[in-house]
Design a protein around this nucleic acid. Sequence first.
DNA 1: ACGGCTGATGTCAGTAACTGTCATTAATGT
DNA 2: ACATTAATGACAGTTACTGACATCAGCCGT
Lengths: 199, 199
Amino acid sequence: MSVAVIKYDRHMGRWEADARGRLEQAALALYGERGFEQTTVAEIAKRAGLTERTFFRYFTDKREVLFWGAGRLQESLVSAVVAAPDSAAPIDAVIAALEAAGAVFQEGREHSVQRQAVIDVNAELRERELIKLARLATALAGALHRRGVREPTASLAAEAGITVFRIAFERWIKDTSGRELPQHIRESFDELKTVTAGR
Amino acid sequence: MSVAVIKYDRHMGRWEADARGRLEQAALALYGERGFEQTTVAEIAKRAGLTERTFFRYFTDKREVLFWGAGRLQESLVSAVVAAPDSAAPIDAVIAALEAAGAVFQEGREHSVQRQAVIDVNAELRERELIKLARLATALAGALHRRGVREPTASLAAEAGITVFRIAFERWIKDTSGRELPQHIRESFDELKTVTAGR
DNA sequence: ACGGCTGATGTCAGTAACTGTCATTAATGT
DNA sequence: ACATTAATGACAGTTACTGACATCAGCCGT
């Protein structure tokens, strides 16, 4: 175990550690308690023991607290698509990557449920969610390009994959039967195949 | 469909007519000249001969100027889907409606090109565009329900249709060959069928 | 041990998006 | 004629966000 890596575990200098994490926690709590619009950045900062200015050093805006994790998701999806076996068709590489990522979500389901409840009741937050998904689609298309897939196949496969993910995620959040996210993804994908099947 | 007839027959003497139209024109011009962020609402209002407060009476926010027309598009698409022949499969009803709407866009291509140039360089505007498209998808799914289509077929067909439209629209904006929007829609749809075709 | 540098935070002033509220006034209706 | 209404103005207030500069504990080279 490398102690060096965690050498700031107790005092990260003269301030409390993990300012970003404290801000995130404070924001999630307040958004949940009073709603997004009824929460001011000043309140978040105060609860985290910091100032408003510091909040904006960690998050580009008030919404971003809920979405900065999407960056890591994107990286893992891209890696998975790039690493898929050569034999996999574009859409299958995408769906496989989504299923793998879905397994990670599965572990923090309760957190996802709460977060989604905040997002669902606010138009601004839904906007931000959509653009994150769009970026994901673009990144996935880029990953497909690295596999030699050309346009418009790459974009369509990526977009279709994101569509499947979105619908599957929504169903998973509402699901009371205990079915897991990867399974919802598989089922939604099968549905899409049926719907688009040429006659 | 067709032109909006916005008249203020009854109060035409006191103020210049068509305040909304003047605000829209002023905003489009300024967004084009200096960019969206570099334009203040006060400037827009001034060019339109009105006040900032009046701007916010017509448009809920600074972005909405570019998107309020989406409401009419949505209505016409829903009508078209509902009116499609009973024999049409869900996805075909959606695509047919999009092709018809696409023909309307075709007439004002230059306007679409300019508007899109403003939107493309600004993240906030892209966010708003995405949520309008998402609303469109929801409305289309609703229209399919009225045709007796069930979930998840309706949502998937609607989402797939919007995906096709988005990609087709993008290609049409960039197109220099003169191919028309409905044709791009048809081609993108055929691509999607190919991409999602099970092996 | 000294002093300078760095990096995370604080302080403060400013801009501009948006909202609430009340005032104004031409046109309308009775 | 007079009350009413609809579109707009006037104005103050909140808050998200930005830029500039100050502070100060720990690190590093000497």
